[in-house]
């Protein structure tokens, strides 16, 4: 295959990575932005999304699209409910202290991982794609499902943007993000906002996990890479900045696609972490973050 089509293929693969990453990282960015909590267990919510999708797919008979559609609804809701419980039982009791919650979410990471190993097992298991459509280009054929992943992520992210900028819930979250004490003084129940934000962030990670599982298979250790890449994206974009997160996800996703295809996936990760180091040295607030 000539260089041009090869590059196009790399960019399309990169867009799929960027779409899934943008979903997962926007959840992490929301949680950090609004709650100032660095959620180390975020990757496990991604993993749970994929694992629950496998359970739902195995339990629901009939066509693959029906099981997948059910997983798209059930997995994010179940994971969001679990995150809300973790918030009430752990984070709230720590008064959302930034240092204490890092340690607590490390504990949560291992609990969720080991629970998945116990219940789901050590094997990687596939979930069938909801449809088997192939886009035939002049140079190569491309999975229609992967294009669906890009479109679905774009729709959800547009919804999150609309939620944050055009709804009362978004206004309340943004006010709480700026000053939680003053938000309380205007009648905002900050504990409820935090619980909702943590659940929403986890739900977004789980949704990303469901979308990726027909491509990569579900495995109890699959949360590590998304966690690392989400942190890379959130730091480059600017901690707590949704716009920065989306731009950084595109940069990291596309470069990951291109470098992985032309060189190696390991080099892509090395360059991404190098970029984080450079951002931390020269622009610690990230590309779109503000100095505090």
């Amino acid at each position: 295959m000539a260089f041009g089509p090869f590059l196009l293929l790399a960019l399309m693969e990169g867009l799929v990575t960027a779409a899934v990453l943008a979903l997962a990282a926007s959840g992490l960015a929301l949680v950090f932005g609004v709650m100032r909590v660095v959620n180390v267990a975020h990757g496990e919510f991604f993993m749970l999304g994929a694992v629950i999708a496998w359970f739902v797919a195995s339990l629901i008979p009939g066509p693959a699209w029906m099981a997948f559609a059910a997983a798209l609804v059930v997995a994010p809701l179940a994971v969001a409910a679990l995150a809300a419980l973790a918030d009430a039982l752990v984070l709230k009791r720590l008064n959302y202290d930034p240092e204490a919650t890092i340690v607590a979410t490390i504990g949560l990471l291992y609990m969720l991982q080991q629970a998945a190993l116990t219940v789901y097992g050590p094997d990687a298991r596939p979930v069938a794609a909801p449809f088997d459509l192939r886009l035939q280009l002049p140079w190569f054929g491309y999975s229609g499902y992967k294009l669906f992943v890009i479109a679905a992520a774009a729709v959800v992210l547009a919804g999150i943007w609309a939620l944050m900028t055009h709804t009362r819930a978004g206004l309340v979250m943004r006010a709480t993000q700026v000053d939680r004490d003053v938000a309380r003084a205007f009648g905002i129940d900050v504990d409820r906002v935090y619980m909702g934000t943590f659940a929403l962030g986890a739900g977004l990670a789980a949704l990303a996990g469901v979308l990726i599982v027909p491509i990569t298979q579900a495995h109890y250790l699959m949360g590590g890479d998304p966690l690392l890449l989400s942190f890379i994206v959130v730091i480059i974009g600017g901690l707590g900045s949704l716009r920065g997160t989306l731009v950084a996800a595109l940069v990291i996703g596309l470069s990951d696609g291109v470098i992985s295809m032309f060189f190696s996936p390991t080099l892509a990760k090395i360059l991404a972490t190098l970029l984080v180091a450079l951002v931390l040295v020269f622009r610690p607030q990230g590309l779109f973050g503000t100095r505090t």
Binding site: L171, V172, R174, A175, V182, A183, F186, G187, I188, T290
Partner: peptide, 16 residues
């Protein structure tokens, strides 16, 4: 709420 507009600050004030 510095990043919020004047209108949005007033809206937060009137939430209740």
């Amino acid at each position: 709420f510095g990043p919020l507009t004047v209108a949005e600050n007033l809206e937060v004030g009137g939430l209740l």
